[in-house]
């Protein structure tokens, strides 16, 4: 099987915490549930290093399903380009009271509600 295509830069590393399943972001020192604390890899070398850390952390049984996610950088920190990953940084769009968006520091953004 061909190696999966690398996402465009810059990237962050996202995963789910093993014990509680929460979406977590790789930081300079460990894992955080806050996307704004994510370590940003802006070049191929840094991205490879981040990816390698993800694999190592999975084998250390800290997280599951770690993979690189391409982001745009804004004033609130990195924001995934793809709507699926953006939803993972927020929570269900239909329940603003749940998920990361429900915690005070993160404003729901980027994935508009379907308002008709």
């Amino acid at each position: 099987m061909a190696a999966p295509k690398k996402p465009p830069l810059p990237v962050i590393l996202m995963a789910n915490d093993l014990i509680d399943g929460e979406v977590v972001f790789r930081t300079a020192t460990g894992w955080s549930s806050e996307p704004r604390e994510a370590l940003i890899a802006g070049n191929a070398q840094a991205a490879d290093a981040l990816e390698a850390e993800g694999i190592a952390e999975m084998s250390r049984n800290k997280v599951v399903d770690a993979y690189l996610v391409d982001v745009v950088l804004g004033e609130n920190g990195p924001q995934p380009r793809h709507f699926r990953e953006r939803l993972r940084t927020l929570g269900p769009s239909i329940r603003p009271d749940l998920g990361k968006q429900a915690q005070s520091v993160i404003e729901p953004r980027g994935v508009p509600h379907v308002s008709l």
Binding site: N16, D20, G21, E22, V23, D65, R84, L87, R88, P92
Partner: peptide, 12 residues
């Protein structure tokens, strides 16, 4: 999975 436990977008 045999016990009905999935990993989804935000959580198990």
């Amino acid at each position: 999975l045999q016990n009905g436990l999935y990993l989804q977008l935000h959580a198990y």
